[in-house]
Amino acid sequence: MVHEALEGLVLSHPQVVAYDPEHQIVTRAHPAAGKVGLLSGGGSGHEPLHAGFVGVGMLDVAVPGAVFASPTALQLHDGTLAADSGCGVLHIVKNYTGDVLNFTIARELADENGIRTAAVLVDDDLATDITGGADGDEDEGHPGRRGTAAVVALEKICGAAAEAGAPLDELAELGSDVVARSSTMAFALEAGTHPGQSRAAFDLDPSEVEFGVGIHGERGTSRIGFAPADDLVAHLVGPLADALDLRRGTEVIAIVNNLGSAYPLETYVAARAVHRQLAARGVTVARSLVGPYVTSLDMHGISVTLVRADDTLLSHWDAPVHTPALTWGGTR
């Protein structure tokens, strides 16, 4: 199924992306030279992530795994070879045990081939933020916050910086900075259903809304009765604004993300609430994305990602991008 979808992607955007079925990687149709290569990957089922963000101004290579399963270490290694044009490769990794393990191995294999790599770990999901739980025994510890929709902001911003010629270490620093400035929170009215299965990942009464859901059918952290959109969104914006310490006068990039089967109409109602609630706090939404960017199969829900912006981030955000799922500005 993943293979067929990738063939469809390439048939639809032949000038932008190419698919190598032997190595199971998606590359640019016209590979870039003389810049750091950007590679991301992860389980499928989150389309358009990551293959939809391959192209000028964003990723060089995307490495898709099976639905909700990490790509293999060899796939990631082959992807790294494809992404390198002599300037090194930046790995953009969402924080999940399998992804981290396979990316780490791929970096070790790349090192042996003389390819320089750096990695940015994306862990923006506020629902999985465990504070004060440090018990001093790291290897018994919590796996940390999950990586979700902030990865799109990171791929866009680092992608622009890479096109502008930023070296590998600088891109890794920029990426970590974007992660530190980002936070995401989601709610669902209905869980997604895995292809081939007849039941959704979890049951939810039509009168209830689950907050803090993940993008793989992970249950949330709390549940409330169905309420108007403004109230639901307030349960996201409030914690996000607090977590990012958004004070009066701050500018943010906002991603109001459809998790799979929210209606576009609903998504813009949520976007309205995000703008108004942030405005009430004196926070300006300087740029936004509204739509399906990081989905969870057909989950009926919405996530909101806020990125505390500054002039540098905004200029990278505004730089041209030409990918199947994100396109603006002139192409080079």
Binding site: G65, A66, A69, S70, T72, A73, L74, Q75, H77, T97, G98, L101, N102, I105, L109
Partner: peptide, 12 residues
């Protein structure tokens, strides 16, 4: 190393 799961890469 070309196999999924967690034990796959560890055995690899």
């Amino acid at each position: 190393l070309g196999t999924g799961g967690t034990s796959g890469p560890l055995f690899g």
